[in-house]
């Protein structure tokens, strides 16, 4: 427990078996330090998404425990879990924006649930949209934006609360190479500002160009953990 105390994220002998007996994640133990940029690689079905979802309790482990800031996620009260979620930004392959809200409202929503007042929201939303280069799309709806633009909105929403951790699950899966490059550059900038980034992908070029820590998964197991790794599968 003492070791866990100063680690930001800790997976301790974590196993997840879905209904029907499918072993999504098996006996994973790893930790992530504050400010790290970690690629999680593996084929489809390797368990990358399940591993990430367990960090914000969208999926709960069958055995073992996941710790965030030394607290076991599975033992948090509902209110504590909501606080943790507001401290973890999430980006998905399918963007997951709120379709009936404008870009401004999508980002404002994340600030509202964090308890920000209207003045702060009016100041923060244009600022974060400027950071991702979409200040002129503030009043558009998600359906009016390209895939790359939607993903940048998702990034803006994920970082607007200045979270400690940013989880990106295949963020470039639906993007062309130019947009992929842009999204990656933004994530690197965010990481340079001190946010821990966990990025699941099976895009070889993205990983190889990174020069970052690479965790490799296969059939639910962790098979490699390289400090400055490459995509090896």
């Amino acid at each position: 427990m003492l070791l866990i105390f100063w680690r930001m994220i800790q997976y301790d002998k974590v196993t997840k078996i879905y209904h029907g007996g499918q072993h999504a994640v098996e006996d994973i133990t790893l930790h992530v330090e504050p400010g790290e940029f970690v690629f999680i690689v593996g084929h489809s079905g390797a368990g990358k998404t399940t591993l990430l979802k367990m960090l914000f309790a969208e999926v709960l482990p069958t055995s073992g425990a996941v710790y965030f800031d030394s607290r076991s996620i599975g033992e948090l009260s509902n209110a504590e879990l909501l606080r943790v979620r507001r401290n973890i930004g999430t980006i998905f392959q399918d963007f997951r924006l709120l379709p009936t809200k404008t870009i401004y409202e999508n980002i404002a929503f994340a600030l509202e649930v964090a308890g920000k007042d209207d003045d702060d929201i009016r100041a923060d939303v244009p600022h974060v949209l400027e950071l991702v280069g979409l200040a002129d799309k503030m009043w558009s709806f998600p359906r009016e934006l390209s895939g790359g633009e939607q993903q940048r909105v998702a990034i803006a929403r994920a970082i607007v609360n200045q979270p400690a951790v940013l989880i990106a699950d295949e963020p470039t899966g639906n993007l062309d190479p130019i947009n992929t490059h842009d999204v990656l550059e933004i994530l690197k900038k965010i990481n340079n500002l001190g946010t821990t980034v966990l990025l699941a992908t099976h895009n070889r070029s993205v990983v190889d160009a990174g020069g970052k820590r690479v965790i490799t998964m296969d059939q639910g197991r962790l098979i490699r953990d390289d400090k400055e790794g490459k995509y090896v599968l």
Binding site: F56, R83, R86, T90, E112, V113
Partner: peptide, 14 residues
């Protein structure tokens, strides 16, 4: 949409 609201940390009543 409800799933996304859950993930960004919105409370039940919100």
């Amino acid at each position: 949409e409800i799933g996304v609201m859950n993930i960004v940390g919105a409370g039940r009543w919100y």
